[in-house]
Amino acid sequence: MSFINLKDKVVQVKIVYYGPGRCGKTTNLEYINRKFREQIQSEMVSLKTHGDRTLFFDFLPFHMGQIKGYDIKIQLYTVPGQVKYNATRKLVLKGVDGIVFVADAMEKQREKNIRSLNQLHENLQAYKESIFKIPLVMQYNKVDLKDHGIPVLPISVLQQDLNSRLQVPYFEASAITGYNVAATLKKIISSTVVSIQKKLL
């Protein structure tokens, strides 16, 4: 749940990048951190293992400017994708306003994407949130691998697997080259802010 400060006119919005291990969540935030320096006033915080896997979360505050006189502060988080970290994954989801589900488009990751999405559904239920109601954007990441001869799932298959019931906006992307990283971010911010705007009088 976003936090709205009527005195200082600040709205804090929490957006979480969710998805299976090594799908590219941290890479999304790293790209945003490099590309939008003027909108980021501080260092990215990464709680990770020696092997660069996310242990708890990455955190990147992103300044969006004003809406209706309110300063919008977007707080970007990633969850740790490894299966064993579901307890911490859940903690990061606390109070979430909008979610980017990052799927790994590599063929061999098909099952992992589905399992991760199902677990997101369960984890949200634990907070009495619904995956069908919360602002959500799908990102089919690593499409650049096609060009390197690595088998990548067709978008139609990813859509069928992950988005046939949810019917949320989706992007193919390459977090490593930056392709559609900003488009994904813009979409989730606008969906989330629209749902919050209703609370701003």
Binding site: S2, K14, K94, G95
Partner: peptide
């Protein structure tokens, strides 16, 4: 702060 990490004051 709240438990989601938002600053109240």
């Amino acid at each position: 702060i709240d438990m989601a990490g938002n600053i109240i004051t």
